[in-house]
Design a protein around this nucleic acid. Structure first.
Length: 601
RNA sequence: GGAGUCGUAGUUCAGUUGGUUAGAACGCCAGCCUGUCACGUUGGAGGUCGCGGGUUCGAGUCCCGUCGGCUCCGCCA
């Protein structure tokens, strides 16, 4: 039989009591984490979000309460009235409350509980139940102290962000969730309109245009903790709905924005007692790609990419010669002390880089006797030259990829991270931040042979590249120059994660028109899609720019996890389903009828 | 859309070359136990080996398909 709570109030949490409370009468409420029954003596570990307190019941002392405790099981919800007693000779150093225990005089069973489908408390996080089971019972998984900590850290991070921007006179402005679909960028989640049959809203991929409009409206400094939606496939750090810190300012230059990026992240990282440099290191996009093969390099370790192209120009080894004559390059990384990699291991790494389009992975193992997969085709002398060019030392392995520049960067950049992970080269106490600047304005799309916006179509070109930009757009024969135009676009990177990105926007309608033309959008099409925005640009738009930071990725860094599901209360699976709610689900035919929607198959 | 990997008791896993009745630990149930905190101890219950098909005298094991979890490529202005 369950008890009623009545007027009882708890006096303390389960993480609160210390030796200083000894002698006090207290009331605790929480979940039974563990029961240890000794017949006439019973111990209960009582858990709430703040911690665990040991409760003791003895038959000798309070027979009624002790008898009631017999019926307790894991996850029952109880209230305990009792006295705080110092533990004599049985302190438990593993518990914050381990110096005391509560001798119960009365127990109320507030609710019972079924046996959980998996064990909440297991020694070591390695033996956790299968994630699909835990996702189905997410509310139980969330009871685990680790997830409790992560979700609370997220709340603290969001609070710190608000604190930062409020103090600096930014205005928090909410923008609509029901917007209009624009075909660029990610796939939209669309929402049918009942009132306007056959028409649809779209959920925001980000509040981009709206935040720019707040600048045109004269708010000067805007921010928002904004939910965003992108109907794309998931990754360990990507969910279809996620949260961004979105900010925008009027009259900034790039340094103005960098100051806010640095200031905000530095403020947030102090939550975990990490002090990032006031001025973050900078790398241009081109340099990041050249040295690390990535636009979000992890700078917690070295192992930079090195170019061997010049050393191999004279080779007649066809894969290399063809690569170089075709405008490709040959680069390497040096894994220190890994000359003992076995054939299996190098084969394994080759399979790894092939995912990124690399044809093969060549290697040189440097030692008393230097060996190489290229020895037969290049000869000892050339191998020695490559070793010296890569500055590899005895005991090192040189790993070489040849191919198109984009493939070499992608494969060696990924290999660099993979080796660091396998060989534990990453110092987990280190936090390496940087700002990557001067992103290219356009990316070439191989399939359609067109140029698409690398960031988004409102990004301003760099002043230095403005003439180049105009030439490339207006002279069809010079269209390929678009690939060389740099934008006032930047990313903030921490520990290899793209935590924020932004740009200075276009505020003049002529340049905006030019950009739409570059992207292959006729003025009619541009007007149809963004007419309201083009109109707005004509009424005195201030220069403006900003950035958006991924709340989840930032929290992943704060919590030291590599999985976005660890920092979201109710995440979805890799196939974008919610196993707890079983969503997405079907809807009633009457609902569809009301929306004039028919399912095609 | 593609690739890899995993799927055996409530949970985590083992399961030999295809061969008797599919095991262990934890959890669960019942008993004993006055200082445990991974309590101990005695006994017990618990299995559509993800699902479907095939090969075979015989399939958890081999083959084909399929579903689901995770990771990656494509995708993510």
């Amino acid at each position: 039989m369950l008890d009623v709570l009545g007027n009882l109030e708890r006096t303390h949490t389960c993480g609160e009591l210390r030796e200083t409370h000894v002698g006090q009468q207290v009331v605790l409420m929480g979940w039974v984490a563990k029961k240890r029954d000794f017949g006439v003596l019973t111990f209960i570990d009582l858990r709430d979000r703040e911690g665990v307190t040991q409760v003791v019941l003895s038959e000798e002392d309070k027979g009624e309460a002790h008898a009631k405790a017999k019926g307790l099981r894991g996850e029952f919800v109880i209230a305990v009235k009792g006295e705080v007693v110092e533990r004599e000779g049985t302190h438990n150093a593993k518990l914050a409350t381990g110096g005391i225990e509560v001798h119960a005089s009365e127990i109320l069973i507030l609710n019972d509980a079924k046996v959980p489908p998996f064990q909440l408390e297991v020694a070591g996080s390695e033996n956790l139940a299968d994630e699909s089971t835990r996702l189905k019972y997410r509310y139980l998984d969330l009871r685990r102290p680790q997830l409790q900590h992560n979700i609370r850290m997220r709340a603290k991070a969001v609070a710190a962000i608000r604190e930062y921007f409020d103090k600096r006179d930014f205005i928090e402005i909410e923008t609509p969730i029901l917007l209009k679909s624009t075909p660029e960028g990610a796939r939209d989640f669309i929402v049918p309109s009942r009132i306007h049959s056959g028409k649809f809203f779209a959920l925001p991929q980000s509040p981009q245009i709206l935040k720019q409009l707040t600048m045109i409206s004269g708010f000067d400094k805007y921010y928002q903790i904004a939910r965003c939606f992108r109907d794309e496939d998931l990754r360990a750090d990507r969910q279809p709905e996620f949260t961004q810190l979105d900010m925008e300012m009027s009259f900034p230059n790039r340094e103005t924005i960098y100051r806010e990026i640095q200031g905000m992240f530095n403020h947030v990282l102090r939550l975990i007692d990490v002090e990032l440099p006031a001025e973050w290191p900078r790398l241009t996009h081109a340099e990041a790609m050249r040295r690390y093969g990535s636009d979000k390099p992890d700078l917690r370790f070295e192992m930079e990419l090195q170019d061997l192209s010049d050393n191999l120009r004279d080779t007649d080894f066809a894969p290399f010669a063809d690569t170089l004559s075709g405008g490709g390059e040959i680069k390497c990384i040096v894994a220190k002390g890994k000359a003992d990699y076995s054939r299996k291991q190098t084969d394994d790494l080759q399979e790894y880089v092939k995912r990124y389009g690399a044809g093969a992975l060549a290697w040189i193992k440097v030692g008393d006797e230097t060996t190489s997969s290229l020895l037969k085709v290049l000869g000892e002398k050339k191998i020695a030259e490559l070793v010296s060019a890569s500055a590899a030392e005895a005991g090192d392995i040189v790993l070489i990829v040849a191919g198109r520049k984009s493939v070499v960067a992608a494969s060696l950049g990924a290999l660099r991270n993979e080796i660091a992970r396998r060989e534990n080269l990453i110092d987990r106490t280190k936090y390496a931040c940087l700002i990557v600047t001067e992103f290219p304005m356009f990316e070439h799309d191989e399939e359609s042979d067109t140029y698409v916006a690398a960031h988004h179509p409102f990004t301003s070109p760099m002043d230095e590249d403005l003439e180049l930009f105009k030439t490339a757009v207006n002279d069809p024969s010079q269209h390929h120059l678009l690939g060389q135009v740099r934008a006032k676009a930047y990313d903030a990177v921490i520990n290899g994660y793209e935590c924020a990105g932004g740009s200075i926007r276009i505020h003049q309608k002529d340049i905006q028109a030019l950009n739409f033309k570059a992207l292959g959008l006729s003025s009619e099409m541009a007007r149809e899609r963004f007419g309201f925005f083009l109109d707005a640009l004509e009424y005195g738009t201030p220069p403006h720019g900003g950035f958006a930071a991924g709340i989840e990725r930032t929290c992943m860094i704060l919590c030291g996890t590599e999985n976005i599901r660890d920092v979201m209360a109710f995440p979805k699976t890799a196939s974008a389903q919610d196993l707890m709610m079983d969503s997405p689900g079907e809807v009633d035919t009457s609902q569809l009828n009301e929306l004039s929607i028919k399912i095609a198959n």
